[in-house]
């Protein structure tokens, strides 16, 4: 039974789907927070994530070259997060803030422009070609394999996937603590709820906006580093390719609902992998070439059926 059905399904579809879902989830958190609090769809979010991942790689490469020490990607992610947060705050200050009182669409255009500017800048600095993020093959974790084999449910899960799934759980728990139990987190929810009321309540909205970029930027970098750990490569188009699934996840979960976005990310990631499973007959249900179309299809269905998302976020 397991070898006929479960082995292939779990190892080659379900686990990769979960991993992809975690990555989308962390990316979508930033999208949904900025959409909810600053009230616009930030098209540059994917590029922020991509830039952060390049920074992480660069930090690792510099340390390797100067000291010969190979750092784990999660360690290189720490300075990268700092860099990405600074970048996000600078972009906000010089390109988004001038439009705070203007019609929303102006800042959407500005973010669309930032998408191109940031990507071009990365391409100028690092070049357009793929870079190997982590070298070598990450073999399935031996202990897990032996144990699951002994109970006839062999799982082939490489360590990187444990890092990604475990890391995502930790980040989501931290996020939960931030939003539910800290002053600034509650204020973020309040501004997302009603910016007008937040302002006349005396909440300093600019401080909340800054906190939003910090949280969004950090989670974006983690998503990017996880993605690069998974694919083991870096590409300047990775941010743009992530953009649509991240928007889809944010809309699915309801705009302004960070945990909705996490849920949405998991659903989209799983859906993208599971549609390639041969549910009927022996051929993939949907050709893997169309995998990225799944996110779009889910998003369009959501926009038709329930634009406020599953967890009843905002619609504009």
């Amino acid at each position: 039974m397991w070898m006929d059905f479960g082995f292939e399904f779990v190892n080659f579809y379900l686990v990769p789907g979960l991993v992809l879902g975690c990555i989308y989830a962390l990316g979508a958190v930033g999208i949904t927070l900025t959409f909810g609090i600053l009230r616009f769809a930030n098209f540059a979010h994917g590029e922020l994530m991509m830039t952060g991942t390049y920074l992480a790689w660069t930090f690792g490469a510099v340390v390797l070259a100067t000291t010969g020490v190979v750092l784990h990607p999660l360690i290189t992610a720490i300075p990268a997060m700092a860099g990405a947060v600074v970048l996000a705050l600078l972009i906000d200050r010089y390109f988004y803030k001038p439009f705070r009182d203007a019609p929303t669409i102006m800042v959407v255009i500005a973010s669309f422009g930032m998408m191109l500017i940031v990507r071009s800048a990365v391409q100028v600095i690092w070049g357009p070609n793929q870079i190997a993020f982590v070298r070598g093959i990450d073999k399935p974790n031996a202990a897990v394999r032996e144990f699951t084999q002994s109970i006839d449910m062999m799982l082939l899960i490489p360590n990187k996937h444990f890092w990604i799934i475990g890391g995502t759980i930790v980040i989501v728990l931290l996020l939960h603590y931030l939003l539910e139990h800290t002053r600034i987190g509650k204020a973020m929810r309040a501004v997302s709820d009603s910016p007008d009321l937040a302002r006349v309540t005396g909440i300093n909205v600019e401080v909340v906006v800054r906190a939003t970029w910090i949280v969004g930027g950090m989670s974006a970098v983690m998503a990017g580093v996880f993605l690069a750990m998974d694919t083991q490569t870096l590409e300047t188009t990775m941010g743009f390719r992530m953009l649509l699934p991240m928007f889809a996840a944010a809309i699915l979960g309801g705009i302004g609902r960070p945990f909705g976005a996490v849920f949405g990310g998991l659903v989209i990631g799983l859906a993208e992998e599971l549609v390639a499973y041969p549910w009927i007959g022996t051929e993939p249900l949907i050709s893997p070439g169309y995998k990225t179309g799944v996110a779009f299809a889910i998003m369009v269905v959501m926009l038709i059926v329930r634009p406020s998302g599953i967890f009843k976020g905002r619609t504009f």
Binding site: A41, F43, T104, I105, V108, F112, L244, L303, P307, F316
Partner: peptide, 8 residues
């Protein structure tokens, strides 16, 4: 829907 959604 609002313009952002059309953009996406």
């Amino acid at each position: 829907l609002r313009s952002d959604y059309l953009a996406i």
